[in-house]
Design a protein around this nucleic acid. Structure first.
Lengths: 174, 174
DNA sequence: TATTGTTATACTCTATAACTATA
DNA sequence: TATAGTTATAGAGTATAACAATA
């Protein structure tokens, strides 16, 4: 099947009028499937965001992390406790300012980030296994156009911000 | 720009290798934007699921609704209380079996469902405004292929089921 | 006095289990 | 005894405010 074919589709799935719903639906599937793969590594989705942020900007203070995540400092305490208990990061008192906790990835934390790249590839393959390479490319390009037009950046997932306002998760239109 | 062009993309957005992340990202955006529009009508995303289910299969008992939503009967009580307080549905004792509550949409509830169709169209237009009609069609077709290949049905959004297992919402891979 | 991180408190959401009224 | 719906209870998650250590 050629995705560029402009011939009308069978009425079971009206295409253009339900893109919003399908995006919401397939996006939720993608999130859920990825969460399952993370669980195999003993990780939760929120853990990944924290590890990525620290890896990209280390060492990082808890205040800075709170700002990046869009949550209050008190919540960061529990969030970090959890990941630290898994041995993926450590808090070290800053020598320059002893109020400050520097967050560092452990070697186990770095190993996990390497593992995540391979489960990401497997996730990708599972998700779009029904599409040909050209179709995958096309889908990626169209999604990037939509993402860019709404100011979504390639690296930031708006999960934490969305959790601030209720209701945070939604169905799409029917 | 032609989405079928197989030429390599600029490296800022590797297309095929990050479709999973972008699906999760754009899907979350679609859900959040739709939730905003619902809020203008005084509705929350969960309300919509309930109204749709009752509209499709009325009258409905609370037990049946609980089964469809994948939640326990006690939770349905609060869920329905909220929508009933908004005047969109009513509970009526069944004459045949007086233990049973039949759930019916009110005329206000039916009016809301009509309104939802128009906000759905506006939502759609906002979401994919950056795409040409042909590109929207292509995106819809590709998403439908992905959805069908994973057994997603055109009318059911897996939100409630996902809430059962923790963590329910997730980031995508980076 | 201001700032970093922590703890205390209250509030919401949800699941499980007891309860009632019907059958 | 079994079933539909309700209420009671307990646990998790999170936001706000009070607090201790450091600057």
């Amino acid at each position: 099947m050629n995705p560029d074919d402009t011939a009308p589709l069978p009425p079971s799935r009206p295409p253009a009028s339900r893109v919003g719903f399908m995006l919401s639906q397939v996006g939720a599937l993608a999130s859920a499937r990825f969460a399952e793969r993370l669980a195999d590594l003993g990780l939760q989705p929120g853990d990944v965001d924290i590890l990525h942020l620290i890896a990209a900007n280390r060492p990082m203070s808890q205040q800075t992390l709170a700002g990046q995540l869009g949550v209050g400092p008190s919540r960061v305490v529990a969030l970090i406790d959890k990941v630290e208990r898994k041995g993926l990061l450590v808090r070290v008192r800053s020598a320059k300012d002893r109020r400050n906790h520097e967050l560092h990835l452990t070697s186990a934390g770095q190993a996990v980030m390497t593992q995540m790249r391979s489960i990401g590839a497997a996730h990708e393959e599972d998700l779009v296994h029904a599409l040909s390479p050209i179709q995958r490319h096309t889908l990626g390009e169209l999604l990037a156009m939509v993402a860019n037009s709404h100011g979504l950046t390639p690296d930031v997932h708006p999960d934490y911000q969305g959790r601030t306002e209720r209701p945070q998760q939604s169905s799409g239109p029917r």
